[in-house]
Nucleic acid binder design. Sequence first.
DNA 1: ACATTAACTGTTA
DNA 2: TAACAGTTAATGT
Length: 204
Amino acid sequence: MKTISCMKIDESLLESFGAEIKNYKPKEFIFRDGDSPLYYYQLKNGVVKINHYDENGKEFIHNILGENQSFGDSLLFTNKKYPINAITLSSSSVIKLPKNRFFELLQQHPDINRDLNNCFSQHLYYNLIMMQSLASPHPSVRIKGLMEYLKSFHSCDDAFSFHIKLTRQQIADLIGLRVETVIRTLKKMQEENLLKIENKQILY
DNA sequence: ACATTAACTGTTA
DNA sequence: TAACAGTTAATGT
């Protein structure tokens, strides 16, 4: 039904505008909360998490990204500083293109500009869904919202076809719950046939 | 390192 | 007041 293209720009095109590839070890910061957005970033391979820490130091994960996904794009269109961190979870290589060259690229490629708008719209839509479920006091609603959100990045939406590749702790940090609650709630949801668990793997 | 369980506390429906 | 999320801690995989 829906093919979400999270923004992916052709690598050689990016390079022709002066993009560079930077390699990161696991647990390195790509940018930090408070930095100024200066580059367009696209993940070539690896896994990156977007998070922030609340006033008590508790982590809140915004997203976990896989290859070919871009991140932090929307901040390039503001003069705000990043309110989030981007941290590698595995060894990763990232393509980075300076902001001004990125804008030139968009100007010369209206089709890509349009795709970017499309991508922003999709994100906005699923962010709304996420927000609505996060506002719920019921853990199962939050988990369900997260699953829908994650599944939206994947093309296939058959029942129980989507494998959630996150640890229980990561799920908890994405929706502001405790691991124990996530575990308890996942069990209930399994009983209610909302998802399947096969040797600890969550299928949605 | 991650998942689960149990026992307890405080909050809320 | 019964259910249920957070806390802590122990145990299992």
